[in-house]
Nucleic acid binder design. Structure first.
Lengths: 340, 340
DNA sequence: ATGAAAGCGCTAACAT
DNA sequence: ATGTTAGCGCTTTCAT
C-alpha cells in the first residue's frame, strides 16, 4: 500500500502538498504539481478512503436498511439507490434485516454515524423511536417510501401518494365497467397498504359503487397469499368481475388462481396491481398496474439524505414523488356479461 | 458522538483499559470492568467503526461488484451474499457497474484495500488483469460464479458446474422422449453460457441424438431476446418439440412466444431453463429448470474471500459448489405425436 | 491490572 | 507556495 508520505518523499515535498494537489485545494506551484502527479502515477497511489473518512469526519458511505429479499421490489429499489448514491460520490452498504427488528437495530447501532454518514430506511419494520434515536445520535435518517403524504412522520421522508395509486386502480376498473370488485390488501388492516385500499374504496364510493369489506381480504404481501385469497374470495363472491390488489405480488397470485380455476384473465376476471415490478411485464397476461416511480424515489431519497448530512435541510421534511401512473397491460378488460 | 476517552474519563480509567474491556483482551480487574461497562451503557457508547478499521488495518466491509440489475438473479445473489457477510460480521458494499467496465474499474480502484478488505466479482465484465492488479495491490478477489470447474482461472473462484447443468437439462428432455430440441444460448459463442450449451450438446450426442447448430441461437440473456429467438426458431424448425435455454430469462421469453404462437407449453413444446430464479416459480406454467445453488455459492464466496483476507488460503484456489439440480415443474412433458 | 504513548493514513489549520 | 503540526477515534506494544 502506497501512502501519501511515500508519494511525498518521491516527489520531494511534504504530504500536505500532495494532499493539496490531489484535492485541488490551496496553492501549489505548477512545477511541484507536475512532480507530485508523476509520483502518484509512478507509485499507483490511491487514497485510503478509511483514513480520509476519519480525518474528514465524514464517511464515504450511506446505508440502506431493507426488510426483506422475498419481495423483488426491494432489490430493485436497492440497486436504484446504489446507482443514485454512486452518482453523488457515495458508496452504498446494504443492510438486509429479513424483517427482523433486532437485526435492524443491530445494524443501526453498529454503522450509523460510525461507518455510514446516514441511513435510508425501506420499510424495515423498525419502530419510530429507534429511528429517532439514531437521528439524535447524529446520523440522519430518511424513510424511503412513506405512504401518507397527508400525515408526515416525525422523520424526513420521501412520500409516494399510494392513496392516489389505489384510486387510480379503482378508476381504471370502474371505467372499464366493473361494478363488483374484490380487493386483496397485502398487509394488516393498519399496515402499510391501508392507504392504497382507502384510495380504492373511496374512488369506488365516488363512482357510486359500494365496495363492502366482504369482498376484501387482508393478506400477506406474497404471490402465494394472493393465490389462496383469490380462490377463497371467488368462491364466496362469485359475482366479482375484477380484482384489485394493493401490490403486484398478490396480483400475480390472483392471476394464477384464476387460471387454475379454469377462467381467463381478463375475459372472465380482470386483475390490477400496484408498483410495477419487473415481473409485471413478463407475466402472461402482462399485468396492468399502477407504477410507483422507483428510480425517482431512490434518487430523491439519496438526495434528501445528503442534504440532511450536509446540513442543507431542516430535519423533518417530506418530499413527494410524482404520482403513481397507470400502466395498462393485458390483465384488465371490460367485464363480460354474465347471467344472473 | 461519545468516544472511548469520554467513557474512560467517566469510568476513571484510561482509554486503553476501556478498549481492553470491550474487546475482552488483556487483563482487567472485575471491578473496573464493571465500572467501564456502566460508563459505556450510561453514555450509549458505540465504537467508531471507521476509526477502528484504520487502527486495526482492516476494514469491516467487503465489496460485491455486480454487472447489472437487468437480470433478477444478480440482486438475488447480492442479498444472499449480504446475509452471508453479515453472518461473518462483515458489511457488504454493493457496486453495480451496469455492465460498464470503466465503472467497474473505478470501483475497484477506489475501494479495494482502502474501504473494503476484499472484493467479490459477479460476472462484472472486467478483464482478468484488472482483477489481478487489484489482488496484487493487496485486496483479495474472488470470482463468485466461475463456469468451468475443469479450467480454473488464475484467480480464486467459486465454480458451479454449468456443463453438468446443461447436461442435466438435456437428459431431462431426452428422457421425456424429445428428439428435436432447440437451444437458446444466452451469450456469445465464447461467452459465459458456452459451457452450458456444451453440456447440453454432448448429453444429446451421448444419447444418440444429434443437435445441430441450426437449432441453436446465440442471443442476449433476456426475456425479450428469448421471445424473439423462439419465434424465429420455431418458424425455421417446426419439428422442434422442446426448447432448452441456457438461462431462465430466455426460457421465460420462449414460453411467452410459444403461447403467443397459439401453442401450449408443455403440450406442444416443452421449455427448460437453468438457474431457478424466483420468477421461475411464479410463471404459468411454472418453469422446469436446473437450479444453481445460489445461497451456497454466496456463502462459499464470502468464506473464501475471508480466508484469503486472513491469509488462511493460498491464492489461486477453486472451490466447487454442489452440482445444479433439476427442478421439475410444469413446463416440460413428453412430446406429443405430430403428423409428419 | 492499568497507564502512557505511538501510530494507522489522511486532512486542515497555521506558520513560514 | 510549501512545510509543520495537531488531530480524527481507536488499537496495541511497552512500561509501571
Amino acid at each position: 500500500m502506497t501512502t501519501l508520505s511515500e508519494v511525498a518523499r518521491l516527489a520531494g515535498v511534504t504530504s500536505a502538498t500532495v494532499s493539496n494537489v490531489l484535492r485541488q485545494r490551496g496553492k501549489v506551484g505548477e512545477q511541484t504539481r507536475q512532480r507530485v502527479l508523476e509520483a502518484v502515477a509512478q507509485l499507483g497511489y490511491r487514497p485510503h478512503l478509511t483514513a480520509r473518512a476519519l480525518a474528514e469526519g465524514r464517511a464515504p458511505t450511506l446505508a440502506l436498511v431493507v426488510s426483506s429479499i422475498a419481495n423483488p421490489f426491494y432489490p430493485e429499489f436497492a440497486l436504484a439507490a446504489e446507482r443514485a448514491a454512486r452518482e453523488r460520490g457515495r458508496f452504498l452498504i446494504v443492510c438486509n434485516t429479513n424483517d427482523d427488528p433486532d437485526t435492524g437495530r443491530a445494524y443501526l447501532d453498529q454503522i450509523a454515524g460510525t461507518l455510514s454518514d446516514g441511513v435510508l430506511i425501506m420499510n424495515a419494520n423498525l419502530p419510530m423511536d429507534e429511528l429517532k434515536k439514531t437521528e439524535r445520535r447524529g446520523a440522519p435518517v430518511v424513510l424511503c417510501m412513506w405512504e401518507k403524504p397527508d400525515a408526515p412522520p416525525e422523520l424526513p421522508c420521501i412520500a409516494v401518494d399510494f392513496y392516489a395509486a389505489g384510486a387510480t386502480a379503482a378508476q381504471h376498473l370502474l371505467g372499464l365497467g366493473h361494478r363488483h370488485i374484490g380487493a386483496l390488501v397485502g398487509s394488516k388492516k393498519s399496515g402499510i397498504h391501508a392507504e392504497r385500499y382507502r384510495g380504492f374504496v373511496e374512488a369506488c364510493a365516488a363512482a357510486g359503487v359500494k365496495h363492502t369489506l366482504q369482498s376484501a381480504r387482508y393478506i400477506g404481501d406474497t404471490v402465494e397469499a394472493g393465490y389462496q385469497a383469490t380462490i377463497a374470495l371467488l368462491r364466496e363472491e362469485p359475482q366479482l368481475t375484477a380484482i384489485f390488489a394493493s401490490n403486484d405480488l398478490p396480483a400475480l397470485g390472483a392471476m394464477n388462481a384464476i387460471a387454475d380455476l379454469g377462467m381467463n384473465v381478463p375475459r372472465d376476471i380482470s386483475v390490477i396491481g400496484i408498483t410495477d415490478i419487473q415481473w409485471a411485464r413478463v407475466s402472461r397476461p402482462a399485468l396492468t398496474t399502477v407504477a410507483v416511480p422507483t428510480e425517482e424515489a431512490a434518487r430523491m431519497s439519496i438526495d434528501l439524505l445528503l442534504a440532511l448530512i450536509e446540513g442543507r435541510s431542516p430535519s423533518p421534511v417530506m418530499r413527494v414523488t410524482a404520482t403513481p401512473q397507470l400502466v395498462q397491460r393485458a390483465s384488465t378488460a371490460a367485464p363480460r356479461k354474465r347471467k344472473a
